[in-house]
Design a protein around this nucleic acid. Structure first.
Length: 324
DNA sequence: TCACATGATTTAGC
DNA sequence: GCTAAATCATGTGA
């Protein structure tokens, strides 16, 4: 996870001392050309005579303002904001908050218990907190830079107003343009942060990476069901739910297990026949008791699909072979 | 360390 | 949407 902060600050490009790296590479993208130009103005302003700087900066800002006058709130920015809030990076910090929720969701996804995953989830939360910290630090820098630049431009305009009339409305519009420009820079920060969170999530929460074998008891329960319904090992939705509950796993995991079991049973029928016999003996004992109580629980449903019919055929052939 | 077991994912067919 | 089949990625035991 050492990559995360680096990812946030890894943009290549020309270096401009004193500004965050996000601000330093904006001119590389055609769409961000104006932002880059403005930033260049900021950075070169101290090397120029004040008059020259004023003239160039004002000319630039006035030349770009028209096209952006009626810009609507950026839906991309809204989406990024929503995502950052949902991930617990932006918005109010709650003790664990959304990160805790994400971790809990991860626990459910991998079918593990809370205690099994607590260490990993605390790591996840720690990394998320780190991202959150970097994000807020950078955001503060942007806001500060935006305020400083706005103040500077307003001072320049006031200076200009001595030589030509500049209305308060014009100043207001100029400020608005500057804010929009800095807002587009913020999108880059938010995109990088979202990317970092996604990578973090995939590393910590990817179920495949975090595969855990089911408990012996769970496997036992699933095998018992499978072999006692060998003629039609397709549990109904209700049966899956019941098995999931008994095994403390999800219904999807039950479906996965039966999918894997069917295919692997078919591939290794000879080998698994012994296992089938063991469970058949167990089932016989259970069935004896069930008959005594008139129970029909978990009875196999009748084959209702091509796959199930094929399976029934295959199973009957296997039985015949084993009889021979 | 390696081979095998196993849970999850992907893809294609229905 | 469910399933078979192939595949991936990780766990486990020798």
């Amino acid at each position: 996870m050492q990559d995360q902060p680096r990812l946030l600050f890894s943009q290549a490009g020309g270096s401009v001392p004193g500004l965050p790296p996000h601000l330093q590479d904006t001119e590389a993208e055609g769409r961000k050309q104006d932002i880059g130009d403005i930033l260049q103005h900021i950075m070169t302003i101290t090397d120029q005579s004040l008059d020259e700087a004023q003239a160039r900066l004002l000319f630039h800002l006035l030349s770009i303002r028209g096209a952006e006058e009626e810009e609507l709130p950026d839906p991309q920015l809204l989406r990024l904001d929503n995502m950052l809030v949902a991930e617990g990076v932006a918005g109010p910090e709650k003790g664990g908050g959304s990160a805790g929720a994400a971790a809990a969701a991860a626990a459910a996804a991998v079918g593990g218990t809370a205690s099994d995953n607590s260490t990993e989830h605390s790591d996840y939360r720690a990394k998320l907190t780190q991202i959150r910290h970097i994000y807020h630090t950078e955001l503060e820098k942007y806001e500060q830079a935006c305020n400083e630049f706005t103040t500077h431009v307003m001072n320049l305009l006031r200076e200009q107003s001595r030589t030509r009339p500049i209305s308060p409305k014009e100043i207001e519009r100029m400020v608005s343009i500057i804010h929009r420009k800095f807002s587009s820079i913020q999108i880059q920060l938010k995109q990088s942060t979202c990317e970092a969170v996604m990578i973090l999530r995939s590393r910590f929460l990817d179920a495949r990476r975090k595969r855990r074998n089911f408990s012996k008891q769970a496997t036992e329960i699933l095998n018992e069901y499978f072999y006692s319904h060998l003629s039609n090992p397709y549990p109904s939705e209700e049966a899956k739910e019941e098995l999931a509950k008994k095994c403390s796993i999800t219904v999807a995991q039950v479906s996965n297990w039966f999918g894997n079991k069917r295919i692997r049973y078919k591939k290794n029928i000879g080998k698994l026949q012994e296992e089938a016999n063991v469970y058949a003996a167990k089932t016989a004992v259970t069935a004896k008791n069930s008959v005594a109580h008139g129970s029909q629980a978990n009875s196999p449903s009748t084959p209702n699909s091509a796959g199930e019919c094929l399976w029934a055929t295959l199973h009957s052939q296997t039985l015949i072979r084993s009889e021979i």
